[in-house]
């Protein structure tokens, strides 16, 4: 039950884009049509769901102060948290590379549609942001962490697909010249974010 409410919360209330602006670069660059937006959304969710639990395990059994206690009592005071950023980003980057190679080898069709996004994902703030929030929020177990990663990914996908849909329709409207393109996209993002804020009152 907790996991479900966590998923809903991370999709609507603490949406990666609308509440924290994570992953904005690719959000703005790849939201011109719905199909590619969906592809990127799926790729982000996929990588997030796979890397966040790995980082959760690393955080709780290697990096955190006292996390190495399972090796023996004498390691109880070891605190490796200074390396956490380095390890997280290394996990994400190598994972993205791995996924890219696996997909390329076994499913060229999927690679053709998803492949171009994968290099973009290593530096997508939403992925690293997910891991850093996981570190800060101290989830009770790996199930909760996975639920959170899934919710965040879906929330990100929802945002980018919605944005792309609006931008497709926007073709036909008269936007003041200096606002064309980037400017109006920012304003729409802000308005969508305001809309999403109305979810923050709900009690889940």
């Amino acid at each position: 039950m907790d996991a479900i409410s966590l998923i809903i919360r991370s999709i609507f209330v603490d949406n990666m884009i609308f509440a924290y602006f994570l992953g904005m670069c690719s959000f703005l660059a790849v939201s011109k049509n719905v199909k590619t937006a969906l592809g990127l959304g799926i790729a982000v969710t996929f990588v997030l769901v796979l890397t966040l639990p790995i980082n959760y395990l690393l955080e709780n059994y290697v990096l955190k102060a006292g996390a190495l206690v399972w090796l023996g009592e004498q390691y109880a005071t070891v605190d490796l948290s200074v390396f956490s950023l380095l390890i997280f980003i290394a996990v994400i980057a190598s994972f993205v590379q791995l996924v890219e190679m696996v997909i390329e080898r076994f499913s060229p069709a999927l690679y053709a549609s998803l492949g171009i996004f994968l290099p973009l994902i290593a530096v997508n703030c939403a992925i690293l942001g997910g891991s850093l929030f996981m570190q800060q929020r101290e989830f009770a177990n790996i199930g909760m962490a996975t639920a959170y990663s899934f919710g965040s990914g879906i929330g990100w996908m929802l945002a980018i697909v919605g944005m792309a849909a609006i931008r497709e329709k926007l073709e036909y409207s008269h936007v003041p010249k200096p606002l064309k393109g980037l400017g109006i996209t920012f304003i729409i993002t802000a308005l969508m974010a305001l809309g999403f804020m109305s979810f923050s009152g709900i009690n889940i």
Partner: peptide
């Protein structure tokens, strides 16, 4: 608090 929603 460690990470409550800013503004809320």
């Amino acid at each position: 608090h460690a990470s409550e929603t800013p503004g809320l």
